[in-house]
Amino acid sequence: MRFMILIKSDADTEAGAMPSEEMLAAMGRYNEELVKAGVMLAGEGLHPSSRGARVRFSGGETTVVDGPFSEAKELVAGFWLIQVKSKEEAIEWVRRIPADPAVEQEIEIRQVFEAEDFGEEFTPELREAEERLRAEVASQQS
């Protein structure tokens, strides 16, 4: 099972504040644990929403809105993508994330859909096309 771990933004991350050297080192050690355990697929921090944009689709039209966006605690500051055996295992990994005890932080865990989750609507032809795309992406990253 794959899980996306979403690190929520706060006023500091939205202001573009960088983590301390100690926090960067702690995150590096945590990432190393994930890699050595064979569960980490990806993990990155994100620039503040002031450097981003939103694209809204409505009534056949698209609208682009540049950041920043309000409600920092509803925004994402970074993520990990991990592969584990259960939601419980994902929770155990999240409990180990280095956190500053002086800062209130919320981390969201969301399971990623797998091909079998889509049922009969995900026909053999659609499944084959998806597998071809994944193989192409993998070859581009080699």
Rank of each mutant, 00 (worst) to 15 (best):
E131G: 01
L75A: 07
Q141C: 03
E74D: 01
T13A: 03
W93I: 02
K85I: 00
L126Q: 08
V39P: 00
P101L: 11
L81D: 11
D10A: 02
A53S: 14
Q83V: 04
A77K: 10
D10F: 00
S142R: 13
E74K: 02
D66M: 10
E125L: 13
S86G: 05
W80A: 03
E130P: 01
M40V: 13
P48K: 07
M27A: 08
F118L: 14
E121W: 12
L46D: 14
E32N: 12
V76W: 02
T63M: 15
R54K: 09
G60E: 14
D12W: 00
F69I: 10
G38E: 07
K8F: 05
E114Q: 13
A129R: 06
F3K: 08
R110S: 06
A26N: 11
A25K: 14
R54N: 06
S70N: 07
I97A: 04
L126R: 09
M4D: 07
V55R: 06
V39F: 02
E116T: 13
V103Y: 02
E61N: 15
K87P: 00
A53C: 09
P19I: 09
E88C: 07
E88P: 12
F57K: 09
F69K: 06
P124C: 06
E116K: 14
F79E: 02
I7C: 03
M18N: 10
E71Y: 01
E130S: 10
R2L: 02
P101W: 05
E104A: 05
Y30N: 06
G59I: 12
S58E: 14
F118R: 05
G78D: 12
P68L: 05
P48H: 09
S49R: 01
A99G: 02
F69L: 11
P48V: 08
M1P: 02
G52H: 08
G60T: 12
M18F: 12
G60L: 10
E33I: 03
F69V: 12
Y30C: 04
G52Q: 07
E116D: 15
P98T: 00
G16C: 11
L6G: 03
M4E: 06
E114V: 09
A53P: 01
D12S: 01
L46C: 15
V65N: 06
P68V: 01
M18V: 14
M40G: 11
G60Y: 11
G78P: 08
Q141H: 04
E104W: 05
Q141K: 06
E104R: 06
M1A: 04
S70W: 01
R110K: 11
E61D: 14
M1H: 02
A135H: 07
R2P: 02
E120T: 15
P101C: 09
A77W: 09
G28C: 13
E88A: 13
V103E: 06
D10C: 04
E121M: 14
E89L: 12
E131Q: 08
E130Y: 09
E125M: 12
A26H: 06
A129Y: 02
P101K: 12
R132K: 12
V112F: 04
W93T: 03
A115E: 14
V76T: 09
E128C: 03
S139H: 06
E131K: 10
E114Y: 04
R132Y: 00
G38A: 05
V103G: 03
R132Q: 08
I5H: 05
V55A: 09
E125R: 14
R132E: 07
P101R: 11
M18H: 14
K36W: 06
Q111E: 13
M27Y: 08
F57W: 12
